[in-house]
């Protein structure tokens, strides 16, 4: 049996979680809401993060726009995603939510714009 102390990052409450891993069975205590339990289970089996950055824009007064992975991606792939982002340029006009890159770094997740450029 293994015990791990985690801080839930899903909301600003930052609950202190205790995860007990007993073979296949994972129990979580310390969470205030169910999201904390989901987070802890994922964090010990398949930790994931949303990645945000910014990319240059062509054909607009706005020099750069911000982007994010639409959902979280495996933590181990953060730098692969960043490599793709660093090579990406977008063309104006672009709306919030527009897909900048499909399946970024083979994560199966889209990279989307979080700012607009006219």
């Amino acid at each position: 049996m293994e015990k791990k102390e985690l801080t839930c990052i899903n909301c600003p409450m930052g609950c202190q979680l205790t995860v007990t891993i007993d073979g296949k069975y994972i129990t979580v205590t310390g969470n205030t809401c169910p999201r904390g339990e989901d987070y802890a289970k994922k964090e010990v089996t398949d930790p994931r993060r949303i990645v945000t950055s910014s990319v240059p824009v062509r054909g607009s007064e706005t020099k750069r726009i911000s982007v994010k992975t639409k959902t979280d991606i495996p933590k181990g792939k953060i730098f692969d995603v960043m490599e793709v982002i660093k090579k990406t340029t977008v063309n104006a006009p672009i709306e919030i939510g527009d897909v900048v890159c499909e399946n970024v770094a083979d994560t199966g997740v889209q990279l989307v714009a979080t700012q607009r450029a006219k």
């Binding site: 985690l6 839930c8 899903n10 909301c11 600003p12 930052g14 933590k75």
Partner: peptide, 11 residues
């Protein structure tokens, strides 16, 4: 915020 220590430093 605690969550920022976890996801910005510890990670």
């Amino acid at each position: 915020l605690k969550r920022n220590i976890v996801q910005c430093l510890n990670d």
